[in-house]
Each structure stands twice: as C-alpha cells, then as structure tokens.
Design a protein around this nucleic acid. Structure first.
Lengths: 170, 170
DNA sequence: ACAACCGATTGCGAAACGCAACCAGTATTA
DNA sequence: TAATACTGGTTGCGTTTCGCAATCGGTTGT
C-alpha cells in the first residue's frame, strides 16, 4: 500500500479524498446548482464558504481528478470548473447522503425537496441525471429528460408554496 | 434554521455530523468488524487512530445519537459501544461509498472484497445486513442469514488466496 | 478614466490533528 | 500477595487546518 495512504480500504480512501466539511459541498453546488465559476461558488453558496478555503478545495479537487479547470473563452480571466466522470459517479453516494440527512437531521423543507425526489426516483433517475451531467460537463449527447430542471422546478414550487403560507399566516 | 448549523441542506447537515476523516472509520469498524470496546477500536484499526482522537470521536458520536455506550457486565471497567438505528441506516451510504472508492481509488484487493459483495448484493442484501445489525446492536430478533459472516468469510478467502499466490511467487 | 468584477492570496487567531507519554482502576497470573 | 497486563481514557505539545477579513493585480464594461 502507498505510504501516503492510511490503508487500502475503499471507505478510508474515499474519506481521505472527500472526508472534510467542504469538498462535497463544492461538488454539490457544481452538480446541482450548475455553479461553474469561482465567484458563483463563493457567493451563491448556502453555507458561506470562505474564499481561501474555496480556492484550496478547488485546487485539491482538480488535483484529485474530480474537477477540471479550463479558461473561459468569453473572458480571459474567467475559469470554468467542470465535473469529471468520477465526480459524476458520486451521484448515488450523494443521493444516499441526502436521503439519510433527510431522515436523521433537522433539514429545511425547501432544501430537502431535491433529496426527496432523488431518493424517490431511485437508481433509474440517478442514471438519467448522470447522463445529463455528462452532457453538461463532458460534452456527451444531450438526453431527452432534464432531471436538473425537474429538481429546480420542484425547489421553486416549494419556495413559492412556503412564501404563500407565510403570507397567509401573517 | 438553527444558529448552530451552516444550512438546512441534508448534504450539509450530514457532512456536519460525519464529514471528517475519522467518524465513519469508527462506525465502519463497529459495523463490519464488530469492534465494541475502546481498545479493539484503538489497536485493531487498519488506519491507526490515536487514542485521544478516538475518545473524542466516540464522545461526539454518542452525543450525536449514532452510538450508545453501556457498561459491560462482565468487566466493571469495560464499556460497550453499540450502533443506534440511525447509524445502522448508514449502510446504504457506506455501501455506495465503498462502491465509489473501489472504482476510483487505489484500493487493496483484500480490503475491498467486502465493498464488492455489498455492491453486488444491492439494496436487498443491505436490508438483510441492517436486520442483522439490529439484532446485534439493538436486540432485535436474529435473522436467518448472516451477511456479516459471509463478508468475513469472503475476506478470509481472499487473504488466504493471496498468501498462496505470494508463496508460489517466491 | 473609472468602477465593477475576475480568481484568487495574505495575515492572523482559533480549532483540530497527530504523536507520545502517562494515569487510575480492575482483572489475571505467578 | 505481589507483580503484570489490560481497561477506558487524559494530558502535553508541536503541527496543520479552519475560518474570517482584508487585500491584490489583472480584466471588462461604461
């Protein structure tokens, strides 16, 4: 086993790569929020990541082969971050993580609707979503169905419902 | 949303609870290695956790409701750690994590055979394994099939095979 | 010319990590 | 009964990481 790894256990090696409080948050935002630029990830994150932490995480994730960084042709300074194949294959893990969190942590309804749909959709939906991510991030052919749009629409529906509820409640 | 949480997103809340380099290692060892005592977790861990880190993690996991700590009747000083229901329901997440690690990290064959069987078995096997964990840790009725024994047997078979290979190779 | 925006970097205090030594109480053994 | 080993930890200490705020040089749009 490599000297730079604690063990060859798949759980351990995955934790060595993703076992911290920010890496999967960044991947989640690229994956579900389609945030491709540094500033988008910095300012539109629910959790408020600091810029130095974000820079460090992006660097590590690129080095680990989970993200790629390319110059944006439309802006000589802009960088575009994309998911790689391995990162896209994290979808089942993230779906299970969302499902567990939804059951066992104090989630907000609005932010857990995506996790609910992803759980209810099961492996078939995940596969469709992964196809869509391969289209967006890897240039694969465009699938008919857009899971991303469905998740976003459901989220907005819940936000609107809750806004209406709050209005009635006042 | 609570002031002590970064956001109500299920991914984030799960990471706040388990997003570090040791918590899931400890749960893995209790779950798959049936290590129930401090010393077992300390010395029989592949990764070599430090005793102060282990003590801190056990305390946190008990506080988070993922483990329980009880005195061992056979030894007035011994403590027994058990998985709770929520921890047992991490099985699908851990299975997906093992499956991903097996594909995308430099795992050792011996330590990844369990992940392979868990992946191939799918949700039905996971459910059987969870039933068995509920028997071991929560006193639920004993299921017919022992997934734990199957995983352990497969592991030992691979270890023996590789030992034979090494012997032939010399 | 100038303001806004781009992806970061720097400085700094606080917290977590990792290692080694150590501890008191309990059970086993000679 | 005295020594030994094992129990679940604790303590000290140096290193690394985290988290926050301010800042930076370069680019773009007005």
């Amino acid at each position: 086993m490599d000297a730079d790894h604690r063990s060859g256990c798949p759980i351990n090696l995955t934790l060595e790569m993703l076992g911290d409080r920010w890496s999967l948050i960044v991947i989640r935002d690229v994956m579900f929020g389609d945030r491709r630029h540094f500033r988008e990830l910095l300012t539109q994150s629910e959790e408020g990541i600091a810029s130095n932490i974000l820079a460090a995480r992006l660097k590590r994730l690129v080095a680990a082969g989970l993200l790629t960084k390319e110059p944006d042709p439309s802006h000589s300074q802009k960088a575009v971050y994309s998911l790689t194949g391995p990162a896209i294959e994290l979808v089942p893990l993230i779906a299970q993580m969302g499902a567990w969190g939804r059951r066992h942590t104090p989630v907000s309804e609005e932010l857990s609707i995506r996790a609910q749909l992803l759980e209810e959709g099961g492996p078939k939906l995940w596969a469709g979503f992964m196809d869509e991510l391969r289209h967006i991030h890897l240039g694969a052919p465009k699938p008919r169905r857009s899971v991303l749009a469905e998740l976003q629409a459901a989220y907005e529906r819940v936000v609107a419902e809750n806004a209406a509820k709050r209005k009635r409640g006042r």
